[in-house]
Simulated assay, not measured.
Amino acid sequence: MIRTVVCQREGCCGNKFYIETIDNNLQLTCKECETKYLFDISYYDFIMISSCSKCSNDTFKVFRDEEKEGVYAKCTECGGPPEKIYIDSDGIQVSYEIKLLHDIKELMYRVEQRVCNLELKVGDLERGQDVLEQSLAYINRYIVEER
């Protein structure tokens, strides 16, 4: 279930926040009373920037998915998401396209490793089959000679 985050401070019912990412946490600051809240977003592979990706507004409504533990924000002016910066495995800021390309390369590398492992296993099976065929040939020759 997705719920709108509302300020919990007594006497305040603000639901518009300034956002800032600090050490894998999303810090929300209530626009009405300036109360701060922290949400863990370490499971995301991006950092949310405190401006809208469409209109550069800096206040957002924030939503929390209680089942999946996700946190989402949308601009109070246009409904757009906040700008996002993606971080690659080396800790360098990259665009979404570069991050996606890196993820695809990583996936291809893993697939290549699995194919290589399968080729090795098939080679082992072929060598095992050769040994079995030779053993059967020796057994067959022994049976023929005993008669």
Rank of each mutant, 00 (worst) to 15 (best):
residue 6 V to N: 07
residue 39 F to H: 05
residue 138 Y to E: 15
residue 89 S to T: 12
residue 118 L to T: 03
residue 24 N to F: 05
residue 45 D to K: 08
residue 35 T to F: 08
residue 74 K to D: 10
residue 52 C to D: 03
residue 10 E to N: 13
residue 69 E to Y: 01
residue 5 V to E: 06
residue 133 E to A: 12
residue 87 I to E: 07
residue 52 C to I: 04
residue 64 R to M: 12
residue 111 V to D: 11
residue 147 R to G: 15
residue 11 G to A: 07
residue 63 F to L: 01
residue 126 E to S: 09
residue 94 V to P: 04
residue 103 D to T: 02
residue 54 K to T: 12
residue 14 G to S: 05
residue 11 G to D: 03
residue 145 E to C: 02
residue 7 C to Y: 03
residue 37 Y to G: 06
residue 96 Y to N: 02
residue 52 C to F: 05
residue 80 G to T: 03
residue 45 D to M: 09
residue 39 F to E: 03
residue 111 V to W: 00
residue 112 E to W: 01
residue 15 N to E: 10
residue 15 N to L: 07
residue 35 T to E: 14
residue 126 E to L: 10
residue 141 R to N: 14
residue 124 D to M: 08
residue 113 Q to K: 15
residue 2 I to F: 04
residue 56 S to F: 10
residue 8 Q to W: 00
residue 40 D to R: 01
residue 54 K to I: 10
residue 62 V to F: 05
residue 74 K to G: 07
residue 3 R to G: 14
residue 12 C to D: 06
residue 33 C to T: 04
residue 25 N to G: 00
residue 89 S to Q: 11
residue 29 T to V: 08
residue 21 T to L: 07
residue 115 V to K: 04
residue 123 G to H: 10
residue 98 I to M: 11
residue 105 K to Y: 09
residue 102 H to S: 13
residue 10 E to F: 05
residue 147 R to D: 13
residue 125 L to C: 11
residue 140 N to T: 14
residue 112 E to S: 15
residue 135 S to H: 08
residue 142 Y to N: 07
residue 144 V to C: 07
residue 104 I to K: 11
residue 73 A to W: 02
residue 1 M to T: 15
residue 15 N to V: 02
residue 118 L to D: 00
residue 135 S to L: 14
residue 78 C to E: 01
residue 35 T to P: 01
residue 114 R to L: 14
residue 66 E to R: 08
residue 82 P to M: 00
residue 140 N to W: 05
residue 146 E to V: 09
residue 17 F to M: 02
residue 88 D to M: 02
residue 119 E to V: 00
residue 107 L to F: 11
residue 76 T to F: 03
residue 120 L to I: 04
residue 17 F to N: 06
residue 62 V to E: 00
residue 56 S to P: 09
residue 119 E to S: 09
residue 41 I to M: 06
residue 96 Y to C: 05
residue 69 E to K: 12
residue 65 D to H: 06
residue 101 L to R: 11
residue 103 D to H: 07
residue 122 V to S: 05
residue 147 R to C: 11
residue 114 R to S: 14
residue 126 E to M: 11
residue 133 E to R: 12
residue 45 D to E: 01
residue 113 Q to T: 04
residue 32 E to D: 13
residue 17 F to Y: 04
residue 24 N to L: 06
residue 73 A to R: 02
residue 124 D to V: 05
residue 72 Y to F: 15
residue 53 S to C: 12
residue 9 R to C: 09
residue 46 F to S: 04
residue 52 C to V: 03
residue 27 Q to E: 12
residue 111 V to G: 06
residue 144 V to K: 13
residue 144 V to T: 13
residue 47 I to A: 08
residue 146 E to L: 13
residue 96 Y to I: 04
residue 113 Q to H: 07
residue 106 E to P: 09
residue 37 Y to C: 03
residue 114 R to V: 10
residue 115 V to C: 07
residue 55 C to K: 06
residue 6 V to M: 00
residue 109 Y to H: 15
residue 21 T to K: 02
residue 107 L to G: 09
residue 62 V to T: 02
residue 132 L to K: 09
residue 16 K to Q: 15
residue 50 S to E: 07
residue 43 Y to N: 09
residue 99 K to I: 04
residue 23 D to T: 10
residue 55 C to F: 05
residue 50 S to T: 08
residue 42 S to F: 04
residue 112 E to Q: 15
residue 134 Q to T: 09
residue 56 S to M: 13
